[in-house]
Amino acid sequence: MVKGIKDLLFDTVINILAFMLLAVVLFALIFVLSASLSDPHMVVTGKVVLLPKGFNLDAYSSLLKQADVWIGYKNSLFYTLIGTSINLFLTMMTAYPLSRKDFKGRTLVTVIFMITMYFSGGMISSFLLIKNIGIYNTLWALILPGSVSVYNIIICRTYMQSSIPFEIQESGKIDGCSNFGVFFRIVLPLSGPIIAVLTMFFALAHWNDYFNALLYISSRNKYPLQLFLAEILVRSQQTSIDAMMSEEELIAAQRQADKAELLKYALVVVASLPFMVVYPLLQKYFVKGIMIGAIKG
């Protein structure tokens, strides 16, 4: 009987801890969403806790008028699309030969790749390279430097080795397929899950990339979303309230500042929503992808 009580206690503690984890994450996410849908004054005075108060879509409609944000959104979509395609193409093409035990020189190639995981030229000599080869302030500066992702190549290679039996490839060869043929007709069609995971990893990296754009992009009309977000969300901390204003002006300025604050909440939602919606659908592949990555190559 004593054991039963002990188990019950243990279960209760575990459930409380799990609920706390859930609450800490969920609360912040719901709060941002609710705040973006509320009356600005309610938000900045702390009336909004979990559910929206004074429901309205003003923040979103004023977001629609922010030309910068939409230029950024459009640019980021474009960069993400092109960047992800190139990443995927190079990763699959490279992972396949490396997965073949009869590929002479694969150790050498792997070592050449792996060194770059532990040592790099650093931001300054990379920057000078980008300048020198003339792709500074172009789409290519955001896409080409990170186009080969060694870590993902290794994940993908391990997947091909462990999930696609070599016998199937052999039989393809007997039927007269070349190496290209085996890759395109047998290996690619069997790589669905890993392609799904990699697509999401790559797309996320491009969409969220701030550093490369900070270094390599100088014209505002080429800015990706993250650079505009940094301006609006982070670099605009000081609201200009002039001491010389009359009371009415002061109230108006205050209201303006509140609205600006609310716009930020809406911006957080708009910038993060795409991946948050897609992720739960792909979760099981992710777990798989991470597990494969954990197997030492």
Binding site: N208, Y210, L229, S272, M276, Y279
Partner: peptide, 8 residues
Amino acid sequence: PHFISTVV
């Protein structure tokens, strides 16, 4: 939250 960008 892992999917939120650093900037956001």
